[in-house]
């Protein structure tokens, strides 16, 4: 059995311009591994939404991507404000993003629902005042 491959990135919370860099790099890495383009696209979109969330809501964090035999796993961890009501946050259109973020093209409240839609598994652990950890998986087979 081969070891799962993993990539780790720190996501800068101060810089909206660089948000998404980790996702772009992951997309390149997965292409090099020769994964199916549709799988890569689903991983990329889910991770990009999560990365943007870490930047606009949580002041940055750490992203880790593991390529196992049966799935690609994305773990996004931050020490931001946490999510008080996860069920509400998951609703399409719910957003606490300020207008400034909307003028940058984000904050429509579609990120978390989109992450759920593009992945086969998604789990959110969050504690107010401590942070958020999101685990997503996209099956390879």
């Amino acid at each position: 059995m081969s070891e799962a491959l993993s990539f780790r990135f720190s996501v800068d919370g101060e810089n909206f311009t660089s948000a998404g860099q980790a996702s772009v790099q992951v997309k390149k890495n997965l292409r090099q591994l020769g994964l199916d383009p549709e799988i890569i696209r689903r991983v990329s979109i889910a991770m990009y939404e999560g990365e943007i969330n870490m930047v606009i809501h949580a002041g940055g964090g750490v992203a880790e991507v593991k390529v196992a035999e049966e799935f690609v796993e994305i773990i996004l961890e931050d020490h931001g404000p946490g999510i008080a009501d996860i069920e509400q946050a998951m609703q399409a259109g719910f957003s606490t993003a300020p207008d400034k973020i909307r003028s940058l093209g984000f904050g429509a409240g579609m990120g978390l629902p989109n992450m759920k839609r593009y992945t086969d598994y998604m789990d959110i652990e969050s504690k107010v005042g401590e942070g958020t950890r999101i685990t997503m998986r996209v099956n390879i087979t």
């Binding site: 311009t17 660089s18 998404g20 996702s23 997309k27 990009y48 093209g105």
Partner: peptide, 15 residues
């Protein structure tokens, strides 16, 4: 009509 780096990344993520 939006101009920032996220336009490019969004397009790339969406293939």
């Amino acid at each position: 009509g939006l101009v920032n780096t996220q336009v490019i990344r969004t397009a790339e993520m969406m293939d």
